[in-house]
Amino acid sequence: MREHFQGRMLRIHFTEDDKWHGEPLYKAIIAKCMELGLRGATVFRGVEGFGASARIYHARSLSISKNAPVMVTVIDTEEQIQKLIPHLDQMIEGGLIASSGVEAIRYTRSG
């Protein structure tokens, strides 16, 4: 099934060691998205980066660093995204949310 819609995309940037109630923040955000019934979300880990604190984060393959930059992407309809934002405001202490309007096509296997 092909579904064409105007939506909104959030990209939420923070680091892998950020926590929310003891669990990694990115897992908490994914869980929140599922709980709110958003249609999908994906977490990406960056290789290197820096943020507001101007600290450089590395994902070193051998030393087990949890300091890598992480980005969560969520794409849904405007209303669904608006439901998520107040929760993000609470959960994110240091980070960045970029929002953009997008044209989206969703493919779903029937059945």
Binding site: R39, V102, A104, I105, R106, Y107
Partner: peptide, 17 residues
């Protein structure tokens, strides 16, 4: 290119900005 995506992707999401 989109018609080809239509053919190839059975399940997923395509976003244009």
């Amino acid at each position: 290119f989109l018609p080809l995506v239509d053919q190839m992707v059975q399940e997923g999401l395509v976003v244009l900005s």
